[in-house]
Amino acid sequence: ITGDVSAANKDAIRKQMDAAASKGDVETYRKLKAKLKGIR
């Protein structure tokens, strides 16, 4: 179950990262990237 949750989280975070990148929001992008590392 835990694996599914983190996989879903990663997917959601990647989508947020894409949105931040397209807006040029480097700050948010970095925060999300750090979150991704924390999940692993």
Score class of each variant (00 low, 15 high):
Q16M: 14
D25S: 00
N9P: 05
K37Q: 12
V5S: 11
A19L: 13
D4S: 08
D11F: 00
A7W: 07
L36G: 01
A8I: 11
I1W: 12
D18T: 09
L32T: 02
R40M: 15
I13D: 01
A19M: 11
A7M: 12
D4F: 05
D4T: 09
M17D: 01
K10N: 08
G24Q: 03
I1G: 11
N9R: 13
A12R: 07
Y29L: 14
K31G: 00
R30Q: 13
K23M: 09
V5I: 12
I1R: 08
K15G: 04
K15N: 04
I39H: 06
D11L: 06
V5E: 07
D25P: 00
A12W: 14
K33S: 04
R40G: 13
M17A: 02
V5Q: 09
D25L: 02
E27G: 01
I1P: 08
K23H: 05
Y29A: 09
S6W: 02
V26K: 13
T2P: 07
R40Y: 12
Q16C: 15
S6L: 12
R14L: 13
R14A: 04
D25F: 00
T2E: 08
K35W: 08
M17N: 01
K31Y: 05
I39P: 05
Y29G: 08
G24A: 03
N9C: 15
G3A: 10
K35V: 11
R40S: 14
L32I: 03
A21P: 01
K15P: 01
K31A: 05
K37W: 00
A20Y: 02
A7Q: 11
S6G: 09
T2S: 12
K33Y: 07
K31C: 15
G38S: 10
I1T: 08
M17W: 00
V5C: 14
K33P: 00
Y29F: 05
R40N: 13
A34P: 00
V26A: 08
Q16W: 06
I13F: 02
I13S: 01
I13C: 00
Q16R: 05
S6P: 08
D11S: 10
L32F: 01
K23A: 12
K31T: 02
M17T: 01
V26P: 03
R30V: 05
T28S: 07
L32R: 02
K33E: 15
G3M: 10
I13E: 00
K35G: 04
R14D: 03
A34L: 06
K15M: 07
G38E: 14
K31S: 02
E27I: 05
A19V: 13
I1H: 12
A7N: 07
A19Y: 07
R40P: 10
A34I: 06
D25K: 00
D11R: 13
A34V: 04
V5K: 10
Q16H: 03
A20N: 01
V26Y: 15
Y29M: 09
K37E: 15
D18N: 09
Q16G: 05
D4W: 03
A34E: 12
G24N: 04
K37I: 12
K31D: 09
T28W: 12
D4N: 10
D11K: 10
A12T: 13
I13W: 04
A34W: 01
K33G: 01
E27W: 00
A20L: 02
G38Q: 13
S6Y: 04
R30P: 13
E27D: 09
